[in-house]
Computed example of a mutant assay.
Amino acid sequence: MKRICLLLPNGFEEVEASVFTDVFGWNLLEGDGTTKLVTVGTREQVKGTWNFTVIPEMVISEVNTDEFDALTVPGGFEHADYYKDAYREDVLTLIREFHEKGKFIASICVGALPLGKSGILKGRNGTTYNLSSGHRQNQLRSFGVNVLPDQPVVMDGNIITSHNPSTAFDVAFKLLELLTSKENCNHVKKLMGFK
């Protein structure tokens, strides 16, 4: 069974987290059944950008990276204190541990910024939120990342980054394909109504 850690910092954007729960949930029940997603919060109860409250299955201090095959990081909003939580040292350490062990790391939108801050994207290709005058892409550049501004989804080695919430399903399906197979991913996509 492949296990996916869905990291939920306070202020996470709900839709960006939910695509991972849906895609991997569908795979567990209707796909090849080889994936299990585990929600991991920075605290015992986390609140999303739009006030959706979640009680995660685990808190970050309980995570043993050896028990997981991938890490997923949704983005979030500054007004909801996303960066305050996503830039915590325990979050950055967790990201580094997944990377050092060669595990897949998939982020959506500004979920790339804690990856950048952790140092794992330095000298590599990536992207992040692409609107609002490129402010977030400039932040990612400040971490030494080669930002590809015109590519909605960028994969460099084991790391996936993306532009904005509209790319969320693309990222989740790409990770499913990497953890299972293209054939299985296409089967799940079809069952979920994607062509």
Rank of each mutant, 00 (worst) to 15 (best):
N125D: 14
E67S: 11
P114E: 07
K47W: 01
G48K: 00
E78P: 04
K117Q: 07
K47V: 14
G116W: 12
N51F: 15
R96H: 02
Y129L: 13
L94P: 10
N64Q: 09
G102T: 12
D69M: 07
I105Y: 02
Y87P: 00
W50Q: 14
I95T: 00
P114H: 10
L94F: 11
F68T: 06
Y129C: 05
L121A: 09
E57P: 03
T128F: 11
P114C: 04
T127Y: 05
N125R: 14
E100F: 07
K103L: 03
A112D: 08
E100I: 00
D69S: 14
L115T: 04
K117Y: 00
E62P: 03
I55E: 02
A106E: 08
G119R: 03
F104W: 14
G126I: 13
I120T: 09
G123P: 12
L71Q: 02
V54K: 08
T53G: 02
Y87A: 05
F104K: 11
F98V: 13
S61R: 12
T49N: 12
A80D: 07
Y83N: 00
E97A: 14
I105E: 01
Y129V: 02
N130P: 04
I55Q: 00
K117P: 01
T65M: 01
M58H: 01
G119F: 10
S61H: 10
Y83F: 15
T72V: 15
E62W: 04
R88D: 08
E78T: 13
T127V: 10
G111C: 07
Y82I: 01
E78C: 04
L94H: 08
G75F: 10
E67A: 11
D66W: 02
F68P: 02
D81N: 14
A112N: 04
F52P: 07
T93M: 00
H79E: 14
T65A: 12
D90A: 10
L71A: 05
S61C: 06
A106G: 06
S61Y: 08
I120F: 08
